[in-house]
Design a protein around this nucleic acid. Sequence first.
DNA 1: ATGAAAGCGCTAACAT
DNA 2: ATGTTAGCGCTTTCAT
Lengths: 346, 346
Amino acid sequence: MRVRLQDIADDLNLSKMTISKVLRGQADISDATKARVLKRVKELNYIPNISASSLRTGQTRTLGLILPSIGKPFFGEVAAGITHAVGAAGYGLIVSSSQEDADAEQRQIEVFLSLQVDALLIVTLQETSAFFNQVGRLKETPVIFLNGRPAGAKGSYAGINEEEVGRIACEHLIQCGCKRIAYIRGSHSAAGDMRYKGYLEALARHRLTAHADLVAESMNADESEFVRGYTAMERLLARRGRPDGVMTYTDMLAAGAMEAAGGARVRVPEDIRFVGCGNDAAICGMRIPLTSMDVGGRELGQRAGKLALRVIHEGGRSTYRALVKPRLVRRRSSEGSRPGRAMERE
Amino acid sequence: MRVRLQDIADDLNLSKMTISKVLRGQADISDATKARVLKRVKELNYIPNISASSLRTGQTRTLGLILPSIGKPFFGEVAAGITHAVGAAGYGLIVSSSQEDADAEQRQIEVFLSLQVDALLIVTLQETSAFFNQVGRLKETPVIFLNGRPAGAKGSYAGINEEEVGRIACEHLIQCGCKRIAYIRGSHSAAGDMRYKGYLEALARHRLTAHADLVAESMNADESEFVRGYTAMERLLARRGRPDGVMTYTDMLAAGAMEAAGGARVRVPEDIRFVGCGNDAAICGMRIPLTSMDVGGRELGQRAGKLALRVIHEGGRSTYRALVKPRLVRRRSSEGSRPGRAMERE
DNA sequence: ATGAAAGCGCTAACAT
DNA sequence: ATGTTAGCGCTTTCAT
């Protein structure tokens, strides 16, 4: 049988109340007793039953995170960020995946609510706020939306400043001396639109004109991202007025595009400079180290975690928002090797 | 306040016992009552408190999965496989990450045990079985090790037949007509040794002699995998007696190696055929579609999930083992495009 | 077909 | 400094 407080109490001729107090660090216990209890707890390998304590206290010190999928590096960073932010406060994180399915997501939400998590963090797939508002009215569990949220949903929000992603990437190319900057977009999305806006803004700010034929959409879902980047670049190269700088929606698109450039005997970065997005270690470490936007998954997680703690602390009444600023990671594809100037790693 | 059974009972002038019975599908309730209850449950959006029911029944219908990291595609497949296998039986899966840290892993184990999961599935980082045997004696929660387990640890096991990974890849190259098959290894690991053994076995079975200089170790951890594959391939090409087939420990190593081959004006697959491992969609979809070993993460998860259910069902007494057989996914890098013969996708 | 009582392991509030 | 009592929301057992 599992070890309970009562077992330890019996062993030591104390009441279970005393054991409970020791374990929760209450002050009104003698040091001698404390030591005896702790010793026995360790020996018996006592593990508290959160179900029981939660029933009594109404809290589990556990946060639930629902992700569209477990296998994506970005989500891994987010999870790590949350864990890091809440661990010190004694909170644990449990994760589950909605498998990119909105119905499964709703079921996962109910699982976490029935497990009595103290807050729910979620990268949601829901298009509308209906489900959240319905559940939200009755359960007082705070919800924190990560990286996008359905219009009209109430709850706190932590997201990424996508406009800055586009702006910083573009501005970097401008500062490298590029005049004709192309943008290889992924499939349409809210984030994609924001980044595009940032791209346009950077151009405008530096009095560069935006050319429609420097924007390549690469949406053929039948092809891999690499191939889509490749063919998009081929198209850009075929037009007159070649770009001298290229930014892409993902690192893999950039990898494909750089390959196309190489095939066309264009030198990188001398003739064309590249900036990817995602800062994927594997991809950025390929042939020509790729300058990339670190979109800030880890920081997003940290901000969201802190935000969750604050909301819990305040009894779930108020809501907050946080926007993470992305960060440029310079590598050879945009700057070449410049002796005397350390390249950023990681 | 949260909705409880009592609230619904009050609403309907029934006892909470009746509500509980309806929710658990007991037969001794009239259809009329059943319908009334279900209706109200839905209206109030009742979500059961698992803590409470667990306290009474001793089970949560929840399985815990501990992974070294959340962001790896392979782990995502494993998690999806488990979810798929146990969902129909009414079990949920919660995941947590040990962040590649053995101490953090132990803490996560305790979190899951204190949450009263019905079984613990784990891709462990522990080198010894000490911790498991210590905890295992006292808690009767079944443990299922996934993809490796510390020597001497008791518990069920689901793993991958790594020897087959090496054997099938090598045999495929042999069947494609290769005579001099090189193997680009990753850093040393138990899995790596097994795959190497399978490679040797395939060679022996077909009366091909193994040449030590066809095995390239690529362990410079400072370099990216791509670069390591690239330089390993350069070395292989520089020696006399070039390989006509190359298999690698990961897909990214193969990508680097193919790039080196291209740079040396070697045609793929005409002059040298390639087989990677991991079947990573992004990498296999690059310039030359890469034949790769699907190591079977999803199936591993499914087997492990079913195994967990069986152990739970049997009261945790017995232990089982399962070995997943990997699968070759043919693409152009090893076979070229052969009209009339469909290429496998995914 | 429905319900009352007891108790799972823990802790808040209140004795001693 | 230590212990007693009661009760969190649910289900098992046993009435009715």
